[in-house]
Each structure stands twice: as structure tokens, then as C-alpha cells.
Write a protein that binds this DNA or RNA. Structure first.
Length: 559
RNA sequence: GCCCUCGUAGCUCAGUGGAUAGAGCACCGGUUUCCUAAACCGGGUGUCGCAGGUUCGAUUCCUGCCGAGGGCACCA
């Protein structure tokens, strides 16, 4: 990497200049900055600004001393002292050509790192199977999956896990709702409970159960029938959920049921561990976790006075279970309503003897779904909701995912279904995909005209000399670092923005530079630049779970 | 009341301890004998919510205040 070479060069210069500056040891490692302006060089460093006070000389003087000591290197064209004391570094284009050759060589692997043995689990979606996934789950699914992809690209081995509570009160109310519809269908008198699920899909479930299992289920005893209805309904809803997720480009490795924890006695065991660690105590007939010792504002019940564990009690056991499976990192993707859980889950990890930093809850802000500016209502129990399937039907997986991944997790976003549906300019996903398709079209044209792509070693990449070309090359060269940084920040939106930026650089190049021309040498160089860009655009889109089409239909003018 | 996130261009949002803070949309104008015009080029707008503090340097870090959204159950 050019950055490493430049830092090494600057470190060397610093060592040479150190005696004159009156500093012998403890030399700082110079940091590179990315200047905003072209005439501030390709890279810059503020190392002299930092040293000036210590040395007791003006920053510019320090900078000049370092600049004078920089050994010559083939990749460094010149170095300038600028502004209050920056050193601006101007590189030769050689490293940009290296980057393009690397793209050609690595292909799909460009920007990625080989697995290094570190294992991460990403737990996301985790909606209770009481109904289809809704709009409310869309951002969670998009972020969780994109994070998993990003981690995989940076060396992690990742498991995607879906956790659900298959035995709580919600599921009972769901079971009772299915039961009521089932009984109605078999001509009996029954009512969906007021606090049950009133959506039309419940009747769909009941009808399917009736078709497959027969009316005999109605004759079961009350308790048995409820359990059966709960199980039958849940199994069907889980199949719906899985199908929706597949359509959304998400595949889970593990669907984890809360009941497994209880069945294996893990909840009692976890509570005992907390007690042994002095982090749990009994009061008011319940067992409490001393979460206030870990930054929570009050202690939390883990076992209720009626002997049943709380949701959080199960979380503690689940934490133990996850760690026992050997993960180095546990990521949770949570909506804003869970922010209060962050301190206590990390606290529980610490109390249980784990590294709290290995537990990473990622909280994202809500999405407001709109339709032409009007809020779309949500709420599963009332049945007044829009299924995620319907969103995908209307706007497509690519547009949905890209739009949801375009914003920082910390930003509350407005998702206007009608706007995203439009295949128009205010829809950045098509801008990026169009770039990819355009390149495919160029390559196809070259092939039609019998222009063969020679090995890149034979191409004279120094012919790529216009600003549009070097800007595009630079865009390609920056991708590996971008991916690493986005993964480190757990920020998929950085990838979305980078894909837009790269597409913009390509479109500019396309407008200014004819690729397939009479100049055979230049054609080779530009074809490689185009082919490399196509590859990198596809790689970035893949990290978002968005497809990279070979061709795109022209939009209807009357839309 | 306490906690979390946010407050940047008319709108939607990026971004950063540095040198003149960006993109898209919207608005106006231009570009197609030529590889996809879903494109490109030009035109301008900012007390970076307010006030202090730390720093050589703060929009960025810290504190307080104001405003917006969300959360503060032995529920799930």
C-alpha cells in the first residue's frame, strides 16, 4: 500500500532530521491525511504541527527540516511545506496503476481480506414469529446482513443468527388467536382475544391448518388445542419469514429458540453464575441482577416472583450459550427502543466473566415509512401493517436495501415508498447499477468489434493521464481501505456512499473519454480501467446485498 | 426527571481535530453524427442549533442550554 510506503519514508526523514530538531527519541509515527484540494497533494501529514511546540520552533520550520530530509523515492514526485506547517506529498501515478493491476488480479476478492480465524456472530431480525415480517423489520435485516457481509470481507468468519421467543405470552396470545379463527372456520363460536392478533393473516393460517391437519383438532381439549395451534401457526409463520428473508437476500445460519435455553437448564445455570459472582441477589420474592454496578439506572429482575424467568434472564443464558460456541465477537442489531438494554447486556457479560467489549449491541434509529409524504401505519397486533413482502413487491430488493443502507445507523430516516419505487434520478441505487451496466455494454461492444482484452501486464497504463482517468483510478485504489474502515466502524452506509462516488467518477470518465477507439494502445488501457471499475462496483454492491446488472432497461419517459 | 440518538445548503443527508465544509434532490442554462442521456458540464446557498471550555488549530472533543425522535415494566 502506498500509504505504508509514504509513512515509512516520512519516519525515515524524521529520524534523519531529529538531531537537528533537538529530539533524539520517542519520535511520533507520522499520520497521513487526505487533503480535500488537489493542489494540497495526494496525501499530507501534520506531523510538523504536532512537533513544533515540543521542538520550540515554528511549525513551518520543522516541516521544512523534515521535507529536506526525505530520501528520494520513485513513488514520490515532490513534497511541499504548506499552510501553517503541513507537508503535502505528491505521488507519481505508479501506485494507481498497481491498484488497477491488483483489481484485475484479485477480481471478486479485491478489497477483501482472507479469513483470519476470528469468529463473529451477528444476531439480527429476531422478530417473534407471530406474523409476517413487516416494514418495521426491514432496516434491521438490511443492516444486519450488510454488517455480516462487511465483517466477512475483512477476515471474520461470520454466523448469522435469528433468535426468537417461542414460549412467551406473545406466542400464547398468537396461539389463542389462531385457535379462535380455527374454531370459527369449523363453525364454532369463538372470539379472537382483545389483546390477540387481529390481522387477516391469522385466518389464512387457520385455514391452512384446517386444510392440512383436518377439523379434528377442534375436538382437542382446551389446553392441548392451544398448544397445537401455537405450534402449527408458528411453524407456518417461520416459513413465511424465511421466504421473505430469502427474497430480501438474507440467509440465516441458525434459528435459535428461547425454549432451548430453558430445556437445557441454561437459564438456571446462568442465574447461578451471576449469583456466584455476587452480581445477583434475592429481593421482594424475585431474583435481581445488579445491573446498576454496570451503568444501568436500576437493577433488573431475572427470575420473577412467580418463578418464571424474565426476557432479560433468558438473555443472560443466551449470552453464555453464544460465548460457549466460541465467538470472539457478538453483534446485536437493535432498534432504538432497545438502547436501554445496552448497558445491562454488556454488564451481564462482564459479570459472567466475559469481555464486555466482545459484546457489541448496535442500535439504529427508526424508519418512518411514508407514501407520498403520508405516514404508513404500523402495528402487527391490530393487523394494520404493511408486510415486508409488499415493500419488496413494490420497490424491489435492490432499491429497498440500498435505500435502507444509505444512511448512518444513527440517523432516523424517512423512507417514502412512492419515491423509492420511482426508477428516477433521485434513486441512487440505479445510478450505481447503471454505471455497472454501462461498462458491461462497453465491454460487449469491444467484443463485437473484435477487440480482445490483452493481459493487463501488456497494457500501458501511463496512457490513463486525464483527470477523469486518474480520479477513477484513485477511486479504485481507495476501496480496500474504505472497506476496512467501514467494517471497523460497523457502518455499511460508508460502502453505499463509496459506491455512489465510484459510479460518479466512472460516469465522468465515460463522458470525457472514448473507450473503444482507433488508438489500440489507449483502448487497451481504458478497457482495463472500465473492466476494473465494473469489478469494483460489483464488489461494493455485493457488500450491500445489491445486484449488479449487466444491462438496464431505459426508463419510461411517461413515468 | 433520568438515559440514548440527532440538530450541517430550500429539502434529504454525508463528512472531518486542520489549510476555501460536501453530495443528491429541487431551480436555471447547456451537451447526443460517437461505447446506454437512468449520463455529463456550468450556475449558489451555510452564524455546521446556542453559549462556554480544552487545543497551535474545534463544525468535529468536553460541559451546559434549546429543539426533534426514541426509551425508562417482575411486559415480550
Amino acid at each position: 500500500m502506498i500509504e505504508d510506503r509514504l509513512v515509512d519514508l516520512l519516519s525515515e526523514a524524521l529520524r534523519i532530521a531529529a538531531p537537528d530538531l533537538g529530539i533524539d527519541d520517542d519520535l511520533p509515527r507520522p499520520e497521513l491525511l487526505a487533503p480535500r484540494r488537489r493542489d494540497h497533494g495526494d496525501f499530507a501529514t501534520n506531523v510538523a504541527l504536532g512537533l513544533a511546540k515540543r521542538v520550540g520552533k515554528p511549525p513551518r520550520e520543522v516541516a521544512q527540516a523534515i521535507a529536506d530530509a526525505v530520501p528520494s523515492a520513485p513513488f514520490l514526485e515532490k513534497i511541499e511545506v504548506a499552510g501553517p506547517g503541513f507537508l503535502n506529498l505528491f505521488t507519481t501515478d505508479e501506485w494507481l496503476h498497481d491498484a488497477l493491476r491488483e483489481v484485475a488480479d484479485a477480481g471478486e476478492a479485491y478489497g477483501r481480506v482472507d479469513p483470519d480465524g476470528r469468529r463473529a456472530q451477528v444476531e439480527f431480525v429476531s422478530a417473534n414469529p407471530t406474523g409476517p415480517l413487516t416494514l418495521g423489520h426491514a432496516r434491521n435485516a438490511a443492516i444486519g446482513d450488510a454488517l455480516a457481509r462487511l465483517l466477512e470481507a475483512t477476515g471474520w468468519t461470520v454466523e448469522r443468527e435469528y433468535y426468537f421467543n417461542d414460549a412467551g405470552g406473545q406466542m400464547d396470545r398468537f396461539g389463542a388467536s389462531v385457535e379462535a379463527r380455527f374454531l370459527q372456520l369449523t363453525g364454532r363460536d369463538a372470539q379472537v382475544p382483545d389483546d390477540g392478533y387481529h390481522g387477516a393473516y391469522v385466518e389464512v393460517l387457520a385455514r391452512d391448518i384446517l386444510d392440512i391437519e383436518g377439523p379434528g383438532l377442534a375436538d382437542l381439549g382446551d389446553g392441548e388445542r392451544l398448544l397445537r395451534m401455537r405450534a402449527e401457526g408458528m411453524a407456518r409463520v417461520l416459513r413465511w419469514i424465511e421466504a421473505t428473508l430469502e427474497r430480501f437476500g438474507v440467509t440465516f445460519d441458525v434459528y435459535f429458540r428461547e425454549s432451548e435455553l430453558a430445556a437445557k437448564g441454561e437459564i438456571e445455570a446462568a442465574v447461578e453464575r451471576l449469583r456466584d459472582a455476587g452480581a445477583a441477589y434475592d429481593a421482594e420474592g424475585a431474583t435481581w441482577f445488579r445491573s446498576t454496578a454496570y451503568g444501568d439506572d436500576k437493577d433488573r429482575v431475572v427470575v420473577r416472583s412467580n418463578g418464571l424467568h424474565t426476557y432479560f434472564g433468558a438473555d443472560c443464558a443466551y449470552l453464555v450459550d453464544k460465548f460457549s460456541r466460541g465467538f470472539d465477537r457478538l453483534l446485536y442489531v437493535w432498534g432504538a427502543d432497545h438502547h436501554g438494554d445496552v448497558a445491562r447486556v454488556k454488564g451481564a457479560a462482564q459479570a459472567l466473566g466475559y469481555d464486555p467489549d466482545a459484546v457489541e449491541p448496535l442500535v439504529y434509529q427508526w424508519v418512518s415509512f411514508l407514501r407520498d409524504g403520508e405516514p404508513v401505519p404500523m402495528g402487527k397486533r391490530s393487523g394494520n401493517f404493511i408486510a415486508l413482502d409488499q415493500l419488496l413487491e413494490e420497490v424491489g430488493t435492490d432499491a429497498a436495501r440500498f435505500t435502507l443502507l444509505l444512511y448512518s445507523n444513527d440517523a432516523a430516516i424517512n423512507f417514502d415508498i412512492e419515491a423509492v419505487k420511482r426508477r428516477s434520478m433521485d434513486n441512487p441505487v440505479y445510478y450505481v447499477q447503471y454505471g455497472h451496466a454501462r461498462i458491461a455494454s462497453i465491454l460487449a461492444k469491444a467484443a463485437r468489434e473484435g477487440v480482445m482484452l490483452d493481459p493487463i501486464e501488456n497494457a500501458d497504463l501511463t496512457l490513463l493521464a486525464t483527470d477523469a482517468e486518474t480520479d477513477l483510478l484513485r477511486g479504485l485504489a481507495e476501496v480496500p481501505e474504505l472497506i476496512a474502515y467501514a467494517a471497523e466502524l460497523r457502518a455499511p452506509h460508508r460502502v453505499a456512499h463509496a459506491s455512489q462516488d465510484l459510479a460518479a467518477r466512472f460516469h465522468r470518465f465515460y463522458s470525457g473519454c472514448r473507450v473503444v477507439s482507433d488508438d489500440a494502445e489507449l483502448t487497451q488501457a481504458r478497457l482495463w480501467l472500465a473492466a476494473g471499475t465494473k469489478q469494483v462496483l460489483a464488489n461494493l454492491l455485493a457488500l450491500l446485498g445489491v445486484s449488479a446488472p449487466e444491462s438496464m432497461e431505459r426508463a419510461d419517459d411517461d413515468d
